[in-house]
Design a protein around this nucleic acid. Structure first.
Lengths: 343, 343
DNA sequence: CTGTTAGCGCGTTCAT
DNA sequence: ATGAACGCGCTAACAG
């Protein structure tokens, strides 16, 4: 029972009609009698027919596949976003093609042409490092792109993101309210969103009339535990270490925890620590991490849906398809990694 | 400068040749003069030509795309494996299409036909729950599949995996050597590899003439911190709780840590804990987790490469393509979450 | 070495 | 409501 390669022609022959009729029956074309449609649909099912997306794509010039470009797949934040994307796409009959840059220039150059070659209908840019050049490239192929948590780039027309400034403000104010004055920001190098969060942090410090000293900023080489540890090491090499550390994300906070605990510093009694994202492990750390919850899955879903709308607009041949921008808030999760200084 | 849709015909026209000649030039066909080839290649470059994979796929019946099916993307173990897969595929000019089942029957049914429809050249099965029915389905379309850490299924011809029994034996023996006798196994329901690990655990216990009591086995609903916490709660509701817990994986151990620490139990003084996988955070936990390192990235790379070989065999029309099986070992990482009981 | 012809599977005109 | 004919972009067969 090898049913490989059943085509609409095979079905047509079996049904005693021609293949356009089969095509119409299978695509709910209006001009077809209900009886033959049912018969053909049943036959197609029996014969194990599976449409050939490649052929359809060649004809329609739409593949129903989307590309997603990110720095790494094995990042707890982005992999959750990806799950959201995949969820929406699957239910819409789209496929998701993923590619990661690993922050290598070479790959960044190669990936976009690869996506064009593959004929994806659109690209989700989840990698912070793309610049205008790359956007123009996609534009030149009329490939829509949706920026996910990646506002920094050019004049993107389609954007969805979590409000970094809102989140960092809540976290910073929380620490200030608890009485902290020497607060460090531990960010990540070469990251637009880390810069945004730092800006929000500084603004909130200033509005509270607290000193902001650059020596309490550190930009680590990676947004993971390795980078977090690296930053903590620096901050605790200072004469007057901070009493609280605002981390770029939860993943880095894990590394900060590691350093502090290894050096006998208690969280939160000696140092308060905050994260960002609320990844799955954050509430299971010891102590549970105070952080800002991002709606990661929903961010992915939203990105997927936004792209669906863009594609639908595009098909309607609107000459000026509306720009789209969605800003998600999030919620402050106060847990046990923060307390008043000196308590 | 909208260079959308430059085809080989366009290039042919510009070069004063016919399109098959362009095709030959671009595909390094032997029968073509070096001069015209160079000219055409240069022209193609200038015109911003990007081949159309869809059209090529229709003709060649090979898409140079692979599907990967897993339960969830946002799992620290699998996302690292995925990164390895993607890395190999990209360098071979293949694309990676991912789909996750979320352990839902409905999706499990839908995903395979979707892959067939999309015309992938092969499928990487990273989801433990596939059964023979699904394998036969893929077989009926001549779609090769590679099982990744997923041996339990039928008579798979292409398999790559980490030696579960080897790993669990090392961990168990490590605990036994330290003097533990009441050791619990905390697994995951409906998981072939969890069953394998349990079997290895039991065997090692028995060979050490230690009692194995079913009440010290628990199979949690999920292989993540939630499941880990669930299991720890159960184990510490027992009259005589274990002095050591062997967890199915590191992710679950995070939940175990959480429960123990919240209840004032010290790791490892009161309870020793081991994981499996050595995910990124494991060495950053407090205390750093004793675990078994799986070569996750390499597992993904190996799976990708194995599929490349299978496809290459398939193209050679070998009537009996050789079966393939790769078993990776791994290494015991003794850290600070284990010690002798009562120390 | 190059051009001619044909066809992959499908959707989409035209007819009827 | 259905059939006949065509073409999407590409590669492969055979001619010359």
């Amino acid at each position: 029972m090898n049913k490989k390669n059943v085509t609409i022609k095979d079905i047509a022959r079996a049904a005693g009609v021609t293949h356009p009729t089969v095509s119409r029956a299978l695509n709910n074309h209006p001009a077809i009698s209900e009886t033959t449609r049912k018969q053909i649909v049943a036959l197609a099912h029996d014969m194990g027919y599976v449409p050939n997306a490649t052929a359809r794509g060649l004809k329609t010039n739409r593949t129903r596949a989307l590309g997603a470009i990110l720095q790494r797949i094995d990042d707890p934040f982005w992999s959750e976003v990806l799950d959201g994307v995949e969820s929406v796409l699957h239910s819409e009959g789209y496929s998701l093609i993923i590619a990661s840059t690993h922050s290598e220039k070479k790959r960044e150059k190669e990936l976009l042409p690869a996506m064009v070659e593959r004929g994806v209908d659109g690209v989700l840019l989840m990698s912070p490092r793309f610049r205008e050049e790359q956007c123009r490239f996609l534009d030149s192929y009329n490939l829509p792109m949706v920026m996910v948590n990646n506002e920094g780039v050019g004049e993107s027309r389609f954007v969805i993101l979590t409000d970094d400034e809102y989140g960092i403000t809540l976290l910073t104010r929380h620490l200030i309210d608890m009485g902290h004055t020497r607060i460090a920001y531990l960010g990540k190098r070469n990251s637009a969103s880390s810069r945004n969060r730092l800006a929000g942090f500084r603004a909130e410090m200033q509005s509270a009339r607290l000193p902001v000293d650059k020596k309490y900023f550190y930009h680590a080489s990676a947004g993971n535990p390795i980078g977090g540890r690296e930053g903590a090491e620096y901050l605790f090499s200072l004469d007057k270490p901070p009493t609280a550390i605002v981390c770029y994300n939860d993943f880095m906070a894990v590394g900060v925890y590691n350093f502090l605990q290894e050096n006998g510093l208690r969280i939160p009694e000696d140092v308060s620590v905050t994260g960002f994202d609320n990844i799955l492990i954050s509430s299971y750390l010891y102590p549970p991490l105070t952080t800002f919850h991002q709606y990661k899955f929903e961010l992915g879903e939203g990105a997927g849906r936004m792209m669906m709308e863009v594609l639908s607009d595009q098909q309607k041949n609107l000459e000026s398809p509306p720009a789209k921008k969605v800003i998600l808030k999030g919620i402050l999760k106060i847990r046990s990694s923060t307390t008043s200084p000196g308590s």
